[in-house]
Design a protein around this nucleic acid. Structure first.
Lengths: 347, 347
DNA sequence: TTTGGCACTCGATAGCCTAGAGTGCTAATC
DNA sequence: GATTAGCACTCTAGGCTATCGAGTGCCAAA
C-alpha cells in the first residue's frame, strides 16, 4: 500500500479532529474549509477516495461525508496526534485529590472517581491484589461464636482483608493471640505468595512434632491463605452512566452489553492485565480489545508503579470518538500520581 | 367516591394482572375474553369508564386500551393481590445461598446479587453501619511510616473497618499494642455511639493526669471515631443493567437519571431508611417514593432484623409494571434469611 | 342492566415527494 | 500531471397523505 502523502496525512488528521469534536461525518466541502488548505472540494474528494482505498476512512452511506475507521484512528493516534499537556487548572485539581493521607482502598476509589469526573467517561482502576507483590505484615484472629474465627490480614502497604473461617472448636482469646503472635513473628515481611508456599511446606514437614499453638495458627492461616481465595486483582469501575448519552452508544442493547461487561469485570481485568506489561499509556481502539461489547469503544490505560514496580493499571473507557489529546496525558499523569501516593504509604 | 363493585374489582384485578404480564394496554374486547366473565365488550367499557372516573385506570390515547394508574396499582396491591408463596426451586436456591459461613460484608453482597438475579430487577441492600446498633469489639493499631497509623476497628457482628490516621510521631509496635489493649479492655462490648460519647467525656475530664499510653490510645481512637466518619449506612446496588430492556424505561435520559440515583445512593438510602421503621414488606409505587427519577419505578423493601432488632433494609427496584405476586414474597423471605444469617455471626 | 350498533378518534404504517448533502466521474484548465 | 468546475447520481431526513385497525363513547333496543 502506498505511503500517505503529507497532504493526505494532514487531511486525515483534521478529519479525525473535527469528527471527534463534532461527531458528524465530514464532507469534502466542509473539510476544504476547515483544513485551512487552499484546495477545492473536488481535490479533497480525490484524496478521500485514496484514504478510503487505504481503509482509513469510510462513509456511512453515499451522501454522507467521511468518518475515520478503526484503522484511521490508529494511524491518527500513532503518528498524527499532538498531545496537549494538561492545563494548569486540571493539574491543580488532580494533585489536590492525592494529598490527603488515605488507605490504598480509598486512594483507588478517589482515583477512579477522578478519572471519570474529569474525562466524563467511565473510570477504571485495578486494585492490586497480586499475591507476589503484596508483603505480609500481620494477622489477627478474633474469636466469634460457634467456632468461627474472624481473620484479619494486613499487608505492608496498609491494605486490610478479612474473612471468617470455621474451626472445630472455640478458642480462648489468649490462645488466639498467641497463635497470631507466633505466625506474625515467623512470616512478617514475607511476600504473600511466599507465605503460602512456606505454609504448605511447613504443614507437610512438621505436622507431628508441632505444638498445639503452632497447629492452630497454621490451620487458620492455611484457611485464610491457601483455600480458594476470593479473587485475584479486583477492578473498580465508576462513572458508567457517563457513557449514556453518547449518540454512538444510544442503542440500549449495546449499552446493556457494555454495562454487563463492567459488572462481570473479567474481560476488563484481562484487558487491563495485558496492558500492565508494557510501560506507559496504551490505547485499545474498538475491536482491538478483542471484546464484542467494546467494539465501539476505546480503552486508554496506563500502569502505575509502587517503588519502581508495576502493581496495577488504571484507565478510562469511552466511545471511540473521544478527545484523545486530553485523555491520554490525563490518564498518564493520574497513574503517576496514584503510584506516588501508594508508595508513600508503605515503608 | 363510590365503592368498587365486586365486578369492577375483579376487572381491575385482571386488567392489572394482564398488563403486568403483557405490557400492552388492554381493550374492552380482550378484557372481556380474558376475564372469564360472560360479559360483552360494551359492558366492560361501562365499567372501565367508572374505573377511569375513580382514577384507577387511564388510557394512553383514545384508541388504545386501558392501563392501571399509580392509584390503580395501589388498590391492586393493597386489596386485590393474591400473593403466591415461593415455589420449591426458588426456596431451595435462596436457602442454599445463605448456608456458607461468611462475614457480614460478603453476606450482604451475596444477598444483593441474589435479589437481582432472581427478580431480574435491581437489588438493594443497606449495609448496617448505624453506630448505635454496632457493638465495639476491638481496635488494632498498626504502625506505618511517617507517623501514620492504620487503625482497624472490629465490631461484635464481625464487621471490619479500617482507616489510616496521621500522628505527630512514630510509635513503637509495643507502644501501639499497649495502647490498643488499654482501649479494648476499657470499651469492649460497648455500643459504638456510646464509645464516642465516653471518649469525648474522658478527654475533657482527665486530660492532665493521663498516662502517655492512655493519651495515645485516646488520641488515635478519637481520630477514628469522632472525626468526620466516612458515612453512615451504606448501600449496595446490583443488577442495575437488568433495568435496561424494559420498554417503559427505554428512554435513555430516564435511564441515566435512574442510574445516577443508584450511584449517588443518597435518595435511595433515605427511602430505605423510611421503610426501616415499619415491619414487613413495604411498596413504593411510582411517585410515592417522592423522587423524580423513580417516578416510573416501584420499590419493594423489607427490613431485616438481628436478634429481634431492625438493623437494615433490603429490596428491589424495577418498573412499576413488575410481577408483585412473585417479588413481594421473595423480598420478604430474603430479608428473613439475611437476618438469620447475620444473627448467627454475633454471639 | 346489558347489549348491539355506529360514528368517531387516534396511532401506526406505508407510500410518496422534495430538499439537501455529498459523491464519483469527466472534461476543461492551470 | 495536478487541480478544478460541472454534472448526473445516490441516499437520507423530513413532511405530507392515505389507509388500516384498534378501541372508545354514546344511544337506543333488548
Amino acid at each position: 500500500m502506498a505511503d500517505l502523502t503529507t497532504r493526505a496525512e494532514f487531511l486525515l488528521k483534521t478529519l479525525v479532529e473535527r469528527y471527534i469534536a463534532e461527531g458528524q461525518p465530514l464532507g469534502s466541502r466542509t473539510l476544504a474549509k476547515r483544513s485551512g488548505l487552499d484546495l477545492s472540494p473536488a481535490t479533497i474528494r480525490n484524496v478521500m477516495a485514496d484514504l478510503e482505498d487505504m481503509g482509513l476512512v469510510t462513509s456511512p452511506h453515499t451522501s454522507a461525508g467521511r468518518i475515520p475507521t478503526q484503522l484511521g484512528y490508529r494511524v491518527f493516534i500513532d503518528s498524527l496526534l499532538t498531545v496537549r499537556p494538561l492545563d494548569a487548572e486540571q493539574i491543580r485539581k488532580v494533585e489536590g485529590e492525592f494529598t490527603a493521607g488515605a488507605d490504598p482502598q480509598k486512594l483507588v476509589e478517589t482515583t477512579s472517581h477522578l478519572l471519570s469526573e474529569v474525562t466524563e467517561l467511565a473510570g477504571l482502576v485495578v486494585v492490586p491484589r497480586r499475591e507476589d507483590q503484596l508483603v505480609f505484615r500481620q494477622l489477627d484472629f478474633v474469636g466469634l461464636s460457634g467456632g468461627r474465627v474472624l481473620v484479619i490480614l494486613v499487608t505492608e502497604d496498609g491494605q486490610v482483608q478479612n474473612r471468617i473461617i470455621d474451626t472445630e472448636q472455640d478458642y480462648s482469646p489468649a490462645k488466639l493471640l498467641q497463635a497470631a503472635n507466633y505466625f506474625n513473628d515467623k512470616y512478617g515481611g514475607v511476600a504473600i505468595s511466599e507465605v503460602k508456599r512456606m505454609l504448605l511446606a511447613e504443614m507437610q514437614r512438621t505436622s507431628e512434632e508441632m505444638q498445639r499453638i503452632m497447629e492452630l495458627a497454621l490451620e487458620m492461616s492455611r484457611k485464610m491463605f491457601v483455600e480458594p481465595a476470593d479473587e485475584g486483582n479486583d477492578l473498580l469501575v465508576t462513572g458508567e452512566s457517563n457513557l449514556m448519552g453518547f449518540p454512538e452508544l444510544g442503542d440500549i442493547q449495546k449499552l446493556r452489553k457494555l454495562f454487563d461487561t463492567f459488572t462481570a469485570k473479567r474481560d476488563l481485568l484481562h484487558l487491563l492485565d495485558r496492558s500492565m506489561r508494557a510501560g506507559g499509556v496504551k490505547i485499545f481502539i474498538g475491536r482491538e480489545s478483542g471484546y464484542e461489547a467494546l467494539k465501539e469503544c476505546s480503552v486508554v490505560t496506563a500502569p502505575y508503579t509502587v517503588d519502581g514496580q508495576v502493581v496495577g493499571t488504571l484507565g478510562v473507557v469511552g466511545p471511540t470518538r473521544m478527545p484523545y489529546e486530553r485523555i491520554i496525558p490525563f490518564v498518564d499523569v493520574t497513574a503517576k500520581l496514584l503510584g506516588g501516593a501508594l508508595s508513600s504509604i508503605g515503608r
